[in-house]
Amino acid sequence: MATPQKTRPDELTVEVVELIAEVVARYHTDYEEAAAGHTLTGAQAKLLSLLSLDPLPMRKLAQKLKCEPSNVTGIVDRLEARGLVERRPDPADRRVKVAAATEEGLRVARNLREGLRFAREPLAGLTEEERGTLRDLLRRMLDA
């Protein structure tokens, strides 16, 4: 039985993948710089951004950050010491603790998002219709 031949991606696909990689690299660089502006590591900033959306249990944070729960505990400890995060009982299960952004943590997370040059510069150069099209295409790619 013959094995199916793997088709090589066409040149356009390769170029699109390379451009996506460049966009991701620029985003990470910009995010790290924005985090440093608040004396945060990239991981601390990402965790704080996640918690600005909803309080989350440590296990769920570890899954979202793709790291070990013990690493998340250390990050939360450092953010808690700065008054940006607090631990609370989970209203759905009092045995579980969730991490939640404090008011100051919410302010810093908002400033982080607003401080990203990446969002202000390249995306701002696109029309609203172009940004909508880009969003829709990215969603399709992620849903595939």
Rank of each mutant, 00 (worst) to 15 (best):
D77H: 05
V85P: 01
E68T: 14
E32C: 07
P122M: 15
A2M: 09
L106Q: 07
A119V: 13
E128T: 06
G83R: 05
T127W: 00
V76Q: 00
I20Y: 04
E32S: 14
L19M: 09
L126S: 05
Y31H: 15
L53S: 11
Q5N: 08
A2K: 04
A92M: 02
E11Q: 06
L40D: 06
P9T: 13
V85F: 02
G105C: 07
L40K: 02
Q63H: 13
N71G: 00
N71Q: 10
R8I: 13
R131L: 12
G42I: 13
S70P: 00
D77E: 15
P55I: 08
E80V: 08
E22K: 07
T102W: 01
G42E: 11
D90F: 06
T13G: 05
P9R: 12
D30W: 01
R26N: 08
A119F: 00
R139W: 07
L56C: 07
R117G: 15
R135Y: 13
A45N: 04
A21E: 12
Q63L: 13
H28I: 03
K6M: 12
A124V: 09
V23C: 14
R59G: 03
T127V: 08
E128P: 04
E15N: 07
E15T: 05
E80G: 08
A36F: 07
E22A: 14
P57N: 12
L40M: 14
E114Y: 11
G42Y: 01
A99E: 02
R87K: 05
Q44A: 09
P9N: 06
L116Q: 04
A21F: 03
R59L: 08
V14Q: 12
K66V: 10
F118C: 08
G37S: 13
D90V: 06
D77V: 12
P55A: 10
R88S: 03
R117A: 15
E15I: 04
E33V: 08
K64V: 11
D90L: 09
D90W: 00
V76E: 01
T39S: 12
Y27T: 14
A101R: 00
Y31Q: 15
H38C: 10
K46F: 09
R117H: 13
L126F: 05
V14Y: 03
L137R: 07
A101G: 06
L53K: 02
L50M: 10
S49Y: 03
K60P: 01
R131S: 14
T7W: 05
D30K: 06
L142S: 07
E103A: 14
E114T: 08
A119R: 04
A100P: 00
L116A: 04
L40Y: 01
P55T: 05
L12S: 02
V14M: 08
R78F: 01
K66D: 14
S49R: 05
A119K: 02
V24F: 05
M141N: 05
L51Y: 01
L123N: 07
G132F: 09
T13A: 12
Q63D: 10
A34S: 11
R113W: 12
A109M: 09
A34M: 06
D93E: 15
A92T: 11
V23P: 01
